[in-house]
Nucleic acid binder design. Structure first.
Length: 526
RNA sequence: GCCCUCAUCGUCUAGUCUGGCCCAGGACGCCAGCUUCUCAAGCUGGAAACACCGGUUCGAAUCCGGUUGAGGGCACCA
């Protein structure tokens, strides 16, 4: 198989989501694998919106699917050109709803050649038949009642406006195909009988629509989830009936929830946008998703989209399903946050600070704040609680000291809120280090206040503060700096855990730092 | 019920095709230690798996058969 794959030239693949909900993480992974496969072999990646079911399809979901794919960096490279302003040179997706004329031809052909037929059975009849088959231990399927209707009978029904569907005349034979991941898969097509392939002469159902489109779009490799394995023989039969060549198939293992069932809403977030909103970076999502069912045979965990393209191959795909492990995603995210350039990271974080109402951008910008990761951003912000002005660079400093602590962007506000509050609230017990008594804490804080007051403004920097405070801490209690440093840190932050107090004090500034130390003293006296 | 697919640490997996180098390697998570005022990061160490039964073989995680378990599918959804 290895040699075969190397010969792959300019493959054409597609991701074909139906816009019945926001982009699902499973669909995103399938898109990624298709994208990687296409790019690895210099091929084409297509987006096709499967919106034949008008009832359930919505424009808003279509928009979400496109937005999230772009956000992930999985741009499709073919489709109808978008001419609207701002989209010059951009491709739109193919939409099945816009291809009815094409389908019509094929459906008519099937009908004319007697490979498909009208069926006038009612849903109730069908349901009863299915149950009957089940009861006698056979697979539920259509019994073929309308299969041999005469022309006259059909016309009569049509004239009477009887509701109908179009069924495929199943040749009932053994269908064999070679899956690029699973190998040979055999099915007896009589298991599924005469399936419905269209609602009417120009509205194909999924299986037919996929077959027609994949042929029309010259798709060479159909890479999709394993849940489509049972559809494959149906589609192969349709290719045969239409006299078309079938593409190659590769079925990816499914992503499961922690209870080993197909990943769904009850397992937590499944929409990609929810992960985006929670503050996951596309790099982390891509890296994580790639490793769900795929692995290079090296002990390397970190891969960018670029490096994945270089390494990707279907042979290294797993056959067995993978459980979605959010902790690993979080780890990846923390890693990529730490790697991020601080300016970029700050830009990414700003929307969260704004949403938490910690700061308000002062310069109105059209693109801001709703667009995450916008290029144009305000350089000046107002701290909502105090009305003070805070510059981008100052916010950057705050984020810098939390960069290695951040796992997901959305946790930032709760980590750094004390920088943006006039008064911080915390229980007085929090000031206590080990067995320190109130008077010890008080004297530590008084000492700290005195020391801090003596520092000249121009020396007010983390390094100097550290030097001075650590020296003092050593004097205060030999062998355990905590008696001195812990209360200071709590006084400044109001938190059990935080970045080092020296860095925090530097950013807070002399005046505020001292006010907070004093406040802690008052709290102790209560 | 019927069909299909899958099976290595809790999880993602390397190794399986081309049996011995594997009393099974890496990563996440977990535990311990170092560092340290705290948290995080980093470093060091640790616990942790070849589903089961039988066969082939001098030798099996690897090959064969079966069992069990898990997942998916069986729509006028995709």
């Amino acid at each position: 198989m290895a040699e075969l794959e190397l010969k792959i030239e300019k493959p054409r693949v597609r991701i074909a989501p139906s816009p019945t909900g926001p982009l699902h993480i499973g669909t995103a992974r399938t898109a990624l694998f298709n994208y990687l496969f296409a790019k690895r072999y210099g091929g084409v990646f297509i987006l096709r919106i499967e919106d034949t079911d008008l009832e359930r399809s919505k424009k808003e979901w279509e928009k979400d699917i496109m937005e999230e794919l772009k956000w992930l960096g999985l741009e499709w490279d073919e489709g109808p050109l978008l001419e609207k302003e701002g989209y010059i040179g951009d491709f739109g997706p193919y939409r099945q709803s816009e291809r009815r004329e094409i389908y019509k031809k094929y459906i008519q052909k099937l009908l004319d050649e007697g490979r498909a037929y009208y069926c006038f059975c009612t849903p109730e009849e069908l349901k009863a038949k299915r149950q009957y088959f089940m009861s006698i231990g056979q697979p539920p399927r259509y019994n073929g009642k309308c299969r041999n209707l005469t022309k006259k009978e059909i016309e009569e029904c049509l004239v009477q406006k009887k509701p109908y569907v179009i069924r495929f005349k199943n040749p009932n034979k053994k269908v064999v195909f070679v899956d690029l991941i699973h190998g040979k898969i055999e099915t007896d097509s009589s298991e599924f009988g005469d399936i419905v392939i269209a609602k009417d002469e120009q509205t194909p159902l999924y299986n037919l629509a996929a077959v027609i489109d994949d042929f029309e779009m010259k798709i060479t490799h159909v890479i999709r989830g394993e849940d489509h394995i049972p559809n494959t023989p149906k589609q192969i039969l349709l290719y045969e009936a239409l006299g078309l060549p079938s593409p190659k198939f590769a079925h990816l293992p499914l992503i499961l929830g922690s209870d080993r069932s197909k990943l769904s809403k009850r397992h937590g977030a499944v929409a990609l946008k929810e992960y985006k909103k929670e503050g996951f970076l596309p790099e982390a999502l891509i890296n994580f998703m790639a490793f769900l069912g795929w692995n290079p045979d090296q002990d390397r965990e970190i891969y960018s989209l670029r490096s994945l393209i270089k390494e990707f191959s279907l042979e290294k795909c797993q056959k067995s399903p993978a459980i979605f492990n959010k902790k690993k995603l979080v780890w990846y995210n923390g890693f990529y946050i730490r790697q991020k350039n601080i300016d970029k990271l700050t830009q990414l974080c700003l929307p969260y600070l704004i949403e938490a109402e910690l700061v308000v951008p002062q310069i109105e910008s059209k693109k801001y704040p709703p667009v995450f990761g916008a290029d144009t951003i305000s350089q000046i912000f107002v701290i909502k609680d105090t009305g003070e002005i805070i510059e981008f660079d100052k916010i950057k400093k705050i984020i810098a000291i939390y960069q290695e602590r951040l796992k997901v962007l959305s946790e930032l506000p709760e980590l750094v809120d004390f920088f943006f509050k006039r008064e911080i609230v915390y229980p007085k017990e929090l000031l206590k280090w080990k067995d320190a008594e109130d008077k010890d804490i008080l004297s530590a804080l008084r000492k700290a206040e005195k020391v801090l007051k003596e520092i000249e403004e121009e020396n007010w920097g983390a390094e100097f503060l550290k030097k001075v405070l650590v020296e003092e801490a050593e004097r205060f209690k030999v062998g355990d700096r905590g008696y001195f440093l812990w209360p200071i840190r709590v006084a400044l932050t109001g938190k059990e855990a935080s970045a080092p107090p020296f860095k925090i004090a530097e950013i807070l500034g002399k005046e505020k730092a001292i006010i907070r130390i004093k406040r802690a003293q008052e709290l102790l006296k209560l």
